[in-house]
Design a protein around this nucleic acid. Structure first.
Lengths: 156, 156
DNA sequence: CTCCGTGCAAAAGGTTTGCACTGGT
DNA sequence: ACCAGTGCAAACCTTTTGCACGGAG
């Protein structure tokens, strides 16, 4: 489910506060892009966000959307997803959650599962890698794709 | 660790058998690209594979590498990875394993962890999603990047 | 007032497509 | 011989960069 209205307001306020304390200029574009990401639960691409905002913000540049998204990711306010598909997708939900990824159509569905959230980090001392978080990709076939008869891409 | 020599031979034989039984033409390019992916453990991009093969296969086209990789993924012989970075990466290891992904440089390290492999699939009846497998992305900072002082953003 | 952020255009990758030719079955 | 696979070039899509202007602190 998408972030709730109340939560969105909190997130925006939190963002504004963080901008101020860091001296990061708070622009209309940044606020609007963040709000647009928070309002959706379908992991939009930069281009989809641009399309949904260009009417509200006349003269908005695609470039700016890319740059703002980069800024928001670096501030830890949103996340960049690396799932199937050519374009990067963005997620306003920054708490730990996992994804169902359809092998056929690439759709990404959020899931929350307490059991999975609590599995302890694996031992990776050998790799000298400092794990901060994790997310699980469950791959398979979504309901719609399962209904369709033709199954071209994946053969088996 | 990379796939072992013996295993590579088995995988190639298995691939040839599957081609025959499906009537998929077995070409030099397909065999060589598959072998090249199996021989490495660093999740190469299409371009890196092309570079490593163009000497062995004079006249090889980048396009062909892309097309062959697509075919191999569809046949289930290799996997496409969707990790940070602009280019898609490919993985010859098709058994269940997980990845350490560096937030800074985008490097992907394989890990095998029995505990993680055995956590049962979550309940997703509501989503009507048929889970087939999963893989876990552990995000954090790799050894090299941790040593570096600056901590701005990703490169590779 | 000073910079940083923005807009525009153009460049820079990475990947896909159209078409003619070659090679596997 | 037939049809799928390949090579080449160009198209395409996403993302990044250079530069001048304008708005936020």
């Amino acid at each position: 489910m998408a972030v709730k209205r109340r939560d969105i307001e909190n997130r925006l306020r939190e963002f504004e506060a963080r901008c101020r304390e860091r001296g990061v200029p708070l622009t209309v574009q940044r606020r609007e892009v963040l709000e647009a990401v928070l309002k959706r639960d379908d992991h939009p691409t930069a281009d989809q966000l641009y399309d949904s905002l260009k009417e509200r913000i006349p003269g908005l540049s695609r470039t700016t959307v890319y740059r703002v998204l980069e800024t928001l990711v670096n501030m830890g306010v949103i996340r960049r997803l690396h799932h199937p598909g050519t374009a990067a997708r963005f997620d306003g939900k920054i708490h730990r959650h996992h994804h169902l990824v359809c092998k056929k159509c690439g759709k990404v569905i959020d899931i929350h599962d307490a059991t999975w959230n609590e599995v302890p980090f694996p031992e990776v001392r050998k790799e000298e890698f400092e794990i901060e978080d994790f997310s699980v990709h469950f791959t398979g076939i979504c309901a719609e794709c399962r209904k369709k008869t033709s199954w071209k891409k994946k053969v088996d």
